[in-house]
């Protein structure tokens, strides 16, 4: 069955979600993945947005985290301060879906600038709630297009904390929980070593070689532990295409 990399990304990310998880969704593919997870993999997961939309039905796909569609038929409508009390809530297993412009081998991310901070070559949106979710949630899953300009040895600006400098540096920085769980790209799924917290290739999509992943990664990557990812099945694709994003707003 034919499928696009973006479809595979949404489904691969959804598979990380357990029933009962509380999902913090950003914009773009992240929102698609959270919706897919709830419709397919974890029907009892709860989705919420940093803007304060808690548990909407998402009958139509939102185009921003402030879209009226994140408010419609929700459990409740609140604001930012309240939303962050769910991100940081110690009782909840909160998983965030995030994207960024650059990522390093410890899963730290840049969504602020390329080039010098005070005279940037490219300015991006900035943190929004990404740094907050990276700091406060139980864990996060990252979406990236794979390429050497995005998977870099050194970030131009560290917006969102991952495993910082690896090992237990995150705990020493003052964080009590959280950190990146996986990076889902158009080629593969990457995870982090339990002790060093360095990124490694976990699953590559059908037809993608470990070499191709390595060539598209700007730092040395362990590819020795990888297997081939389970492709999406017909039912997963049907739900994604017909129910989640029929206008192909994000699937393209």
């Amino acid at each position: 069955m034919e499928y696009s990399p973006r479809e595979m990304m949404a489904i691969a990310a959804g598979r990380f979600i357990k029933d009962g998880d509380v999902l913090f969704a950003g914009t773009g593919v992240a929102m698609l993945a959270a919706t897919v997870a709830k419709r397919i993999h974890a029907p009892h997961a709860h989705i919420f947005f940093e803007t304060g939309g808690i548990g909407p039905t998402l009958e139509e796909l939102p185009m921003a985290v402030a879209d009226p569609r994140v408010m419609a038929f929700a459990n409740l409508n609140a604001g930012l301060v309240e939303a962050f009390s769910y991100v940081a809530n110690r009782r909840l297993h909160t998983i965030a879906f995030l994207g960024a412009a650059q990522i390093d081998k410890y899963g730290n991310m840049n969504s602020t600038v390329i080039g010098d901070y005070h005279a940037p070559r490219v300015r991006f949106s900035g943190s929004g709630g990404a740094c907050d979710a990276g700091s406060l949630a139980s864990g996060f899953i990252v979406f990236m297009q794979h390429g050497v300009l995005k998977f870099v040895e050194k970030l131009d600006y560290l917006t969102t904390p991952g495993w910082l400098t690896g090992g237990d540096s995150r705990r020493h920085a003052g964080y009590r929980r959280g950190g990146p769980i996986a990076v889902v790209t158009n080629l593969c799924v990457l995870k982090f070593d339990d002790s060093t917290h360095e990124m490694y290739l976990a699953e590559r999509y059908e037809g993608v070689t470990p070499e191709r992943v390595r060539e598209n990664t700007g730092f040395a990557l362990d590819v020795s532990r990888s297997s081939v990812a389970e492709p999406p099945d017909a039912e997963e694709l049907r739900i994604l295409r017909d129910e989640v994003d029929p206008q192909r707003l994000i699937l393209g």
Binding site: M63, A64, V122, F124, G126, G128, G129
Partner: peptide
Amino acid sequence: DIAYGGNGRFAPTCIRFRKAVE
């Protein structure tokens, strides 16, 4: 003072904001 200069899918980074900073 800003957290995010974007406009959802209509502009992942707000366009005039981006130009002004660059």
